[in-house]
Nucleic acid binder design. Structure first.
Lengths: 206, 206
DNA sequence: CTCTTTTCATAGTGATCACTACAGAATGAG
DNA sequence: CTCATTCTGTAGTGATCACTATGAAAAGAG
């Protein structure tokens, strides 16, 4: 413990030679396409251009890198899907826009198909149960955001007071998860949008 | 090529010492819980009580055992879910019963949660893309069965002729897939049933 | 009995897994 | 400058992966 005047982000030592955002984007794509267990460290090396020590110095472990990629995904694709939930008014149209956003994002030809979180780490090996819990927690957070939106719609008088907001939230969550599965299986944007339109029929009348 | 009088199931050689059904049941449970990649051969050995040579002699490979387990699942749990699709009349109530069956089966406390096929092998490693395709094909078959049921309902006049049966089938497929995800995340039977009830609101009126 | 066939048990195979020891290189602190 | 610190590249670590070589055991055929 020598003198360490400031707690500032002391730029001591050799500086990093890689762009963290770029690395996260490449690694995210690998995890997105192959899942946590299916993504090998050697493939992550190839994709990021980083040698193992750099990865471990920056992210601690494969799981650390994975969780950083989950955050990166949430901030990017995830926010583009759920953005209507932050709108001024909570109503049927906002919910519909969320589903349409998902249809668009999950079928983007420039990225892996489906959602990186909705259908990730559903069944992992015995040694990686904590990874499953981490992804589960993120799904729960999204489900909570949807339900909060529905409660808000109810309070604003745009959703029937009799509606079961928890069940409705689970329903729309299921649609998003199902769209993720089917996008991965090859469904295109138009098919996902048509499904989303059908799903909106579950929004209670009135 | 010596004399081989009959092509009958010649019971020549040392007989098997294990019960194939029992082995399939145990292996299925392991794959169901941990997925294809997450299930290690050593765990499958422990669960089935079989040594590697017995497994490979009987099923050829890990993938061969996996696909045998998928068939075993389809014949058991799967058929208990989709059984109403074979009913004499195709209508709203039949579709509802499928969802309710799924809610019950996916939350059975005596088995792994969720569906072994609906949400399996969605993102696998580079070396196992054929496993992903095999599971995808089974999901496509189920989706086709649902759509055929809806077409039948339409022909029988119990579903509006204007209804988009393909989109409706995708919708109910998504509900089943979403129930599988959420069951795995801890949703109980009552929650899944409530979600299914909401989803039935997407069945076109008339 | 012998011969062939099939299954079973032991004990491994090379390959790949996630991860790290080590030393050199690049910076700031003093 | 020297020292401490942080990062990078090389070259591995033991562990586990799916899988198999080998030979004995257990059955039918002749």
């Amino acid at each position: 413990m020598t003198t360490m005047e400031k707690g500032k982000p002391g730029r001591r030592g050799r500086p990093r030679e890689f762009d963290q955002e770029r690395v996260l984007d490449r690694a995210m794509t690998v995890f997105w396409r192959h899942g946590y267990e299916g993504a090998s460290l050697s493939e992550l090396q190839r994709a990021t251009g980083l040698a193992p020590p750099s990865i471990y110095n920056a992210f601690g472990s494969k799981q650390g890198l994975y969780e950083a990629c989950l955050d990166h995904y949430t901030e990017g694709v995830g926010s583009r899907v759920t953005e209507p939930l932050d709108g001024a008014r909570a109503d049927r149209e906002g919910m519909r826009r969320v589903l349409m956003n998902a249809a668009r994002e999950f079928s983007d030809p420039d990225r892996p198909r489906g959602c990186m979180i909705s259908t990730a780490a559903l069944s992992v090996g015995e040694r990686h149960t904590d990874v499953g819990r981490a992804v589960c927690a993120r799904r729960a957070r999204t489900l909570g955001a949807v339900e909060a939106y529905l409660v808000r719609a109810q309070q604003e008088g745009r959703l029937s007071a009799q509606a079961d907001t928890a069940a409705l939230a689970r329903h729309f969550g299921a649609i998003i998860q199902g769209m993720s599965v089917q996008a991965g299986d090859g469904a295109d944007r138009a098919e996902l949008e048509a499904m989303a339109d059908v799903a909106m029929g579950a929004w209670p009348p009135g």
